[in-house]
């Protein structure tokens, strides 16, 4: 006869309970419930936004820089919190690959030159975060939020010595709904100060007007950026 398994808590659930609900034992738990953090780092495009071929929705974006400021308020147990965030990112346009694509298309039809700029993003968002227990004054914070981003598309131009001006896209602005998700490793130095390393994925889909093209089309650009930042946190 089969032996009845004892009615126990599943190991994963147990681990999760310990992870999130264990009593704070470290010194940093004396920190205040509010925090202000500043960070800076690199902004790396991915997915179609980083594609550099004339394929569907290719963005030709290259890694750039980003700055971020965040204000956080934790709940009583300092596990769940809410935050408001403002950030700026600049991503370079892959001019070399953009030119290479035109040269590929036109082959030996004259010479082509391109003029490009860079992508600008100014975002404001709010969201939720959850933090784990501290181990050696270091904890992991998971966060997700939504907000709006002012996106600026760069001016683009391609001129071929045989065909003339083959493409012009004027710079354009769009305010667009955005979503972010990220993880942050925060180390508390003392009662008031901490440092952190964060990884955040940012996504939005701004629409821009291409006024120079036939019938002036509106196009959508799926923006996907990974921000890898290092910064300071001030508790208050």
């Amino acid at each position: 006869m089969k032996k009845q398994a004892p009615n126990t808590i599943p190991p994963l659930l147990l681990l999760a309970l310990v992870f999130f609900c264990a009593s704070p034992v470290s010194a940093q738990e004396t920190i205040n419930r509010n925090a202000l953090s500043f960070s800076a780092g690199t902004a790396v495009p991915f997915d179609e936004f980083a594609y550099s071929r004339f394929t569907y929705r290719a963005g030709f974006a290259q890694p750039g820089v980003n700055l971020d400021a965040k204000i956080i308020h934790y709940g009583k147990r300092k596990i769940f919190g809410i935050y408001a965030d403002a950030g700026y990112a600049y991503l370079f346009f892959n001019e070399k690959r953009y030119l290479a694509e035109y040269e590929r298309i036109f082959e030996d039809e004259g010479t082509t030159s391109v003029t490009t700029g860079g992508y600008h993003f100014l975002k404001a968002e709010a969201g939720f975060l959850i933090r784990t227990i501290a181990i050696r004054d270091t904890r992991i914070i998971l966060q997700t939020g939504v907000g709006y981003t002012l996106c600026r598309h760069p001016y683009l131009s391609a001129v071929n010595s045989y065909w003339g001006v083959v493409n012009t896209v004027n710079s354009d602005l769009d305010l667009q709904l955005t979503g972010t998700a990220g993880v942050r490793v925060e180390h508390t130095l003392d009662e008031y100060t901490g440092i952190h390393l964060s990884y955040q994925v940012f996504a939005c889909k701004p629409s821009f007007m291409d006024r120079e093209s036939y019938r002036a089309v509106t196009f959508y650009l799926p923006v996907r950026i990974q921000n890898i930042n290092f910064g300071l946190t001030r508790y208050f």
Binding site: F54, Y102, W163, K205, S207, S213, Y214, V217, F219
Partner: peptide
């Protein structure tokens, strides 16, 4: 609401690489 807004933008057009069309040489 945010989900609905994202779905509205699912139907899209891409950035053009030529202002007007060309018959290949």
């Amino acid at each position: 609401l945010p989900l609905a807004l994202l779905l509205v933008h699912a139907c899209d057009r891409s950035r053009l690489n030529l202002d007007i069309a060309i018959v290949p040489r």
